[in-house]
Nucleic acid binder design. Structure first.
Lengths: 343, 343
DNA sequence: GTGAAAGCGCTAACAA
DNA sequence: TTGTTAGCGCTTTCAC
């Protein structure tokens, strides 16, 4: 503490500027001078003051990541991927939780996160109707997910519709004909771009393609997407007496609950009922049976999102290029719950 | 962007200092003046430049949290608790992952996390032999866990020994006599303060108290503490032919694997084998059967750790009070896997 | 290739 | 109660 650039400059018998050049890897520094400066830095244990650098350069080297709740495995794994991607670019990440609280999310989007150069935001409560908020945003922002799609903002997201379709096609390929879906949103307004709505759409598309009838009784509401809600929806499904030989859970957390409820009821998975989830969280390896899922490309999402944000930060205020959209590649992961052998 | 304190001062017809006083809620500002300044702030959309404040005050208002890996639910939930505790004190949290990599952990402890006023560090690889590193640390640091206990540093941790003992006593109370433990560390050097060693100690103490014989065949190594390792250790235990009617998994992630392996083998839980874990992660609600566990007091740990760190930050360089130790209160959570009814 | 000097926006003495 | 002033440590013109 307390060693400044000036101290280094004095010891190395150079100016402030030269030390700065060395520290920032600028070219045009005589190798000998560079070595001398580096020796002085080591000797004094000099470490740049990042607040000062931030003040001068207008950059903090920190980005923000706002998610609803780290206790949901998907978001923890997303944070892991984002932190890793940021680290590769020598950035730090401030993590904020908006707690699935609409007002909190509005506050986040209006203000960003303190001390950051830009924000990666995965909202849960904001919808297309909040698009107007995005016009006010005057800091670099990249949205994760497509809930507010249509604004001026970059989005990085997953193939919700196509992934869901692939999940159901996988079940169809197993010969299942009565496929239930668990996790539909209780509020069925149209025009929303919630993951639940998009995935239900993919489910229906797959049924149509397969020539299977749609049956409203097979579409079960569950919210929020916690295991308990998946279990409750499945118990209702069982109690309703409607026949089914497969369940598509709209995410893996729900699927864990589905597996539990099926187990309680004595239904064997996958023999009686095949189950597939969505998100491919690591939990899926260790359920009994292990859980098939759609891998939404989490690492790609993180990598691309950080890259986009960095570009936005670099472009500065003036340059407002149009919004970009990136959808990561997905894949079907077949584990035991749909007859696979992987765990 | 670009609105400075000076702009506000000009508009409100006051000095810089007065604006600063208002922004920082200093007393001794005439109510009328305060109102005028606040109006100017709102009108211009002024927001303090935190880099400048940081440079001037030597504080960033950001603390660091370093954990091995957010994909492990325990650490995700810890991060959640720390972020919440920090937010209550108007602090942001930069999250870093050391990846259970010894060199990475050494780098973290030597340098702290950039842009932060202090660090909450939960190391996984550093041990008592690295105590010397702590003497070099010249920034506010609070360690989570007791792996490097004995240095000059504050620690906040859980009752590993006592909690483990309570877990086994709970099993004994159910009438179980052949209690296996899963998750011992492969390297049995003494003098280590790993959670595994401490919890095994608690296990043995409970056996002694209950007058049960120790049996080395019931102590199974498993590392790292992932579900797959718990499953593997349990399969070995089953294959060894040794009799057992209960398993104490040293954490919940292992326990998930234990449940899986028992299920595969057709052992009923809790009828044939009772199972209890440690950590009380939310996953435990949704396993089949739901998982009994030791709740280590995560929120208390986060709250106390942030508080201690803040005190350290406030004390400044000179004041080096002796190291403090806080152990959070724990409790036994009895769910279905030990005959309870909760989920 | 290197140096001198200005100033980023804020806070904290010290004055008034 | 409010104003003046001097930096915090760094980067960045602009000279040399």
């Amino acid at each position: 503490m307390g060693v400044t650039m000036r101290d280094v400059a004095l010891l190395a018998r150079v100016s402030n500027k030269t030390v700065s050049n060395v520290v920032n890897d600028h070219p045009h520094v005589h190798p000998e001078t560079r070595a001398r400066v580096q020796r002085a830095i080591a000797e004094l244990g000099y470490r740049p003051n990042l607040s000062a650098r931030g003040l001068r350069s207008g950059r903090t080297g920190v980005i923000g990541l706002a998610v609803p709740d780290l206790r949901q495995t998907y978001f923890a794994e997303l944070a892991d991927a984002v932190i890793a991607a940021a680290e590769r670019r020598h950035l730090s990440v401030i993590v904020g939780q908006a707690g699935a609280d609409r007002d909190h999310e509005i506050a986040v989007i209006e203000n960003g996160l303190k001390q950051t150069d830009g924000l990666l935001f995965s909202p849960e409560r904001l919808g297309t109707e909040d698009r107007g908020l995005l016009d006010q945003v005057e800091y670099p922002l990249v949205l994760l997910g497509e809930r507010i799609f249509g604004g001026p903002t970059d989005h990085v997201t997953m193939h919700n519709v196509e992934g869901a379709r692939a999940a159901v096609e996988h079940l169809v390929g197993l010969g299942r004909r009565r496929i239930a879906v668990v996790g539909a949103h209780p509020d069925r307004r149209t025009g929303q771009l919630r993951p639940s709505d998009l995935r239900v759409r993919g489910y229906r598309e797959a049924l149509v393609v397969a020539g299977l009838p749609e049956d409203e009784r097979l579409e079960r509401v569950a919210a929020p997407w916690h295991p308990a809600d998946g279990a409750a929806a499945t118990r209702e499904l069982l109690a309703s007496g409607v026949e089914f030989d497969a369940v598509f859970a709209l995410n893996d957390a729900l699927a864990v609950g589905v597996l539990r409820a099926l187990g309680e009821a004595g239904r064997r998975v996958p023999d009686d009922v095949a189950v597939i989830g969505f998100d491919n969280i690591s939990t899926g390896h260790f359920t009994l049976p292990s859980l098939s899922s759609i891998d939404p490309g989490r690492d790609e999402i993180a990598e691309v999102a950080v890259g986009m944000l960095l570009e936005r930060i670099g472009w500065g205020e003036g340059t407002s290029r149009g919004p970009r959209l990136h959808k990561a590649a997905f894949r079907v992961v077949a584990r035991e719950s749909t007859g696979g052998t992987d765990t």
